[in-house]
């Protein structure tokens, strides 16, 4: 898999988050673009991998930290995780959608999506891949690009 040599990761300044959920929308929009005409409406369930949470003091996004000792990596029974330049990715061909990584993630940002491939509905885990396809074209991750206050940063 082609990955830029140097990876930049997401960071957040929660005080600047307005809770507008543009990042959630951008994440989903990119996924929809990704599937293109493969799927008819209703075939797939798309969930964002950046999720705005809310406590008494305001809102703040939760997103994948690409942990160095990641629970998703450790607990995956089929070894479907790949780590490239510190970025954790899932191998779609291995993943069987068991959902253990979803439960293991301390940030709650792994979601199980449904995909229809050749009339067979398959469940697959999805997580933030830092928009590798966009990075190849020198584009920023969709959520970062969409954040109107730049509460999200790339470091």
């Amino acid at each position: 898999m082609c990955i830029p040599k140097e990876s930049k990761f997401l960071a957040v300044d929660a005080s600047q988050c307005m809770g507008c959920r543009n990042c959630e929308l951008a994440c989903c929009t990119r996924k929809v673009e990704h599937y293109g005409n493969e799927a008819k409406p209703g075939d797939i369930r798309i969930m964002p991998n950046i999720i705005i949470g809310h406590d008494g003091n305001g809102s703040k996004p939760a997103f994948c930290r690409h942990c160095s000792e990641a629970f998703c990596e450790k607990l995956c029974p089929v070894n479907a995780t790949i780590k490239v330049n510190g970025v954790i990715l899932f191998d779609k061909t291995k993943c069987n959608g068991c959902g253990i990584c979803e439960q293991a993630c301390p940030y709650g940002v792994i979601t199980i999506g449904t995909f229809k491939i050749n009339e067979i509905t398959k469940k697959l885990a999805t997580k933030c891949d830092l928009c590798i396809d966009r990075r190849i074209n020198d584009e920023e991750p969709a959520c970062y690009a969409a954040c109107p206050t730049k509460a999200l940063a790339l470091i």
């Binding site: 988050c17 307005m18 507008c20 959920r21 705005i52 809310h54 305001g58 109107p148 206050t149």
Partner: peptide, 28 residues
């Protein structure tokens, strides 16, 4: 409905014309 959009809460979301909608970054 939570989290509510902070731009609307602060009144800095403008939907008056169709060039937008525009939002003003309060931290800029």
């Amino acid at each position: 409905m939570k989290p509510l959009c902070g731009f609307g809460e602060q009144g800095i979301c403008c939907r008056i014309c169709m060039k937008g909608p525009c939002r003003i970054n309060p931290f800029s």
